[in-house]
């Protein structure tokens, strides 16, 4: 069983990157990851798979963030911004951010985390068939917006 300290050093950055893709906010991503570790700390010895636990925690916290902060999401500017310094990628990122939160989470978990849709469904608490439908709709929307 790795220590909390070691796990933090190993996973803090990848989890922060995942949280950023899910929330679109670097500040919120930092908060989400800190909260994930904070919630894991008191039960650390009982967690069998820390990486999976923390990833699930980040996904849930990001989902909760979307649900509870409608105001902020509403006012979030989603126009292309210079994130990667590559205009085409920045434009695509802006379109991903504009997806409904579930579709966006499916896209991020499938294409960034490389998770099969069954696993994405487990993380999001949705049947695999629904996740497939989410992905299909997201891709259709992105394809249309990019064309």
């Amino acid at each position: 069983m790795p220590t909390l300290e070691a796990t933090y050093r190993e996973l803090h950055l990848p989890l922060r990157r995942l949280a950023f893709l899910l929330t679109g906010s670097r500040e919120t991503a930092e908060d989400v990851v800190q909260n994930a570790f904070a919630s894991a700390q008191p039960r650390w010895d009982g967690i069998e798979a820390p990486a999976a636990y923390l990833r699930r925690s980040v996904v849930n916290l990001a989902k909760d963030h979307h649900r509870r902060e409608l105001r902020r999401r509403r006012l979030l500017r989603v126009e292309p911004e210079a994130v990667t310094a590559i205009p085409e990628l920045d434009e695509t990122w802006a379109l991903i951010r504009r997806l409904p939160s579930i579709q966006r989470a499916v896209v991020v978990l499938h294409f960034y985390e490389d998770l099969p849709l069954v696993e994405v469904g487990r993380l999001l608490g949705r049947p695999a068939s629904t996740v497939r439908s989410d992905l299909r709709r997201a891709l259709a929307r992105l394809r249309k917006d990019l064309s």
Binding site: L21, T84, I86, L89, T92, W93, I96, V107, F111, L146
Partner: peptide, 19 residues
């Protein structure tokens, strides 16, 4: 499109720096 999304997400994620 799949490859484009992978590349986009990887590039965006890479902008989150080490601390």
């Amino acid at each position: 499109l799949d490859q484009h999304l992978r590349r986009t997400l990887a590039a965006v994620a890479a902008t989150v720096p080490e601390q």
